[in-house]
């Protein structure tokens, strides 16, 4: 048996090794490697290949069995999960409603922004400017403006004297 195995696995023997058969079984060999005729005709390789494919076919054909009680319990659980959302009803909306409520509350609690300061500042500045102008004008004049009414009296008299 060991001697046969050595011949079969010897490179160049033409026989298919175990590894090569497995590659072929799983579709991993390249087209250049294919020599299925040898598998069908070789007295050494053909029975090995037949045994390998038969074992494989047995697995695929469903030799494995799942216990029925386990499958039954799965089905019950699946139907329970399918029906579960309808029993919950409006409760499924609670998270969304809570989020919406938080957002609305946050917006409502925001106080309106205070009146913009620049307008008041502008009024003060304007009155300040006018004040400064008046003060400057007063300082430049030789005669105080407050004396204007008296000056007007004197100006009329002067014009009469000239004549």
């Amino acid at each position: 048996m060991k001697a046969e195995k050595q011949v079969i696995n010897q490179p160049g023997s033409g026989h298919w090794s175990e590894a090569r058969m497995l590659d072929h079984l799983y579709g991993l060999d390249t087209p250049a490697d294919l020599n299925e005729r040898h598998l069908a005709e070789c007295p050494d390789c053909a029975p090995r290949w037949t045994a390998l494919t038969a074992r494989r076919a047995k697995i695929v054909a469903g030799a494995y069995a799942a216990r029925e009680d386990r499958l039954r319990a799965q089905r019950a659980a699946i139907f329970d999960r399918i029906e579960r959302p309808s029993r919950r009803g409006l409760w499924s909306l609670v998270p969304a409603a809570a989020t919406a409520l938080l957002l609305v509350t946050g917006v409502a609690l925001q106080t309106p922004a205070p009146a913009p300061q620049p307008q008041t500042v502008a009024v003060v500045s304007q009155s300040d400017r006018e004040l400064f102008r008046e003060v400057a004008a007063l300082m430049e004049e030789d005669v105080p403006r407050a004396t204007d009414p008296f000056n007007s009296l004197f100006e009329t008299s002067n014009s009469l004297e000239v004549q």
Partner: peptide, 24 residues
């Protein structure tokens, strides 16, 4: 489909409870 799907899940996950949950 159930048996085939359960066995597929069992082979991939290697744990019957996980395969139960996955099948569901």
């Amino acid at each position: 489909q159930q048996r085939r799907v359960f066995l597929l899940c069992l082979r991939m996950l290697g744990d019957p409870d996980d395969a139960d949950t996955a099948t569901q």
